[in-house]
Computed example of a mutant assay.
Amino acid sequence: MTQTTEAARPAVILLSGGLDSATCLAIAKSQGFAPYCLSFDYGQRHNAELKAAARVAKALGAVEHRVVRIDLATFGGSALTDASIEVPTDGATDGGIPVTYVPARNTILLSYALAWAEVLKGDDIFIGVNAVDYSGYPDCRPDYIAAYQAMARLATRTGVEGSPLTIHTPLISLSKADIIKTGLALGVDYSLTVTCYKADDEGRACGVCDACRLRAAGFADAGVPDPTRYQPA
């Protein structure tokens, strides 16, 4: 394992390979943290994002990047982990939680990040959740993050011994346009990222799923060119 220096505190960054998590990594690094990136092969249908995560981690100078394999597709229950459930492409919503929500995903991913942070003797985890321009997932809300952080401080040796963990959510109250502007100011190359729920093996986006719509609108609102590669019509 790569050793951190005394000048840089280790932080675990949950890195999906998408726009938000890439920005989160850049923010963590700009704040002086030594970033240890953690990605997951959890049975998602948009597996091209893992290649994107590797590109982003390398480009932004992660100390280390690990990919953990878990199988949430065993349970299904989401359009992202069950091929029998179609990813919505019409942009319609009834105001409820969409079928692209993966049951308990952030709780599971944060638990892995928590374990690695303890091993690294680090007190910081970064996650790119957002409660403004997002799809309505319950595990992206501020009260969820606050509850998880409280639990983590009770459930870990470092927390009990007086060094409580902090879950950083620097994007949680930003619009997608502001996220993009922040990332560009920090040198993020968004052409390396993949956000689409239906990306093909080459990482090209479908252009019509909810994730694609939010991403495209963000670039338009930010007034900057969209570097996304799209699948042929």
Rank of each mutant, 00 (worst) to 15 (best):
A199G: 14
P232K: 04
K198V: 15
E118S: 01
L214K: 04
V160E: 15
G32W: 14
E118W: 07
S39P: 06
A79N: 01
G77E: 02
A34F: 03
T5C: 12
Y137S: 09
Q3K: 11
E64P: 04
T93F: 12
G187F: 08
Q231Y: 06
A216T: 08
R45S: 12
A217W: 00
T74G: 07
A152R: 13
T156E: 08
H65I: 03
R66Q: 15
D201Q: 14
E161G: 07
F40M: 07
Q231D: 07
D82E: 13
L38C: 08
I27N: 00
T74D: 13
T156Q: 13
A54E: 12
H168T: 06
A217G: 00
Y101K: 06
Q3D: 14
F75G: 10
G77N: 04
V102K: 15
D123R: 15
G203W: 03
I125G: 02
G91N: 12
T195D: 00
D200T: 13
G95T: 12
A22N: 10
G203R: 01
P98Q: 04
C24I: 03
V12I: 02
A147W: 07
L50K: 11
T23N: 02
S21Y: 03
S111M: 14
Y137P: 09
G17T: 08
S135F: 05
Q3Y: 08
T4F: 05
A199L: 03
P170M: 01
V224T: 02
P227W: 09
A92T: 10
A185T: 14
A92W: 02
I179D: 08
L192Y: 11
R9V: 09
P138Q: 04
A34E: 15
E118Y: 05
D123M: 13
I13T: 02
G18W: 01
S173W: 06
I172T: 08
Y42K: 04
V188M: 12
M151H: 09
A62Q: 01
R45N: 06
E161D: 08
A233T: 15
T166C: 00
C212G: 01
V119N: 12
A57H: 00
L192A: 10
P98N: 14
V68C: 06
N130T: 09
P225Q: 03
Y230N: 00
C209T: 05
E64D: 07
D143H: 15
A79K: 02
T107I: 15
T81M: 06
I127P: 00
Y134S: 08
D178P: 01
V129N: 05
S84W: 00
W116G: 09
A8N: 08
L120P: 04
L80I: 09
A59H: 05
A57R: 00
V224R: 04
R9N: 02
A177N: 04
V68L: 09
T169E: 12
I127C: 11
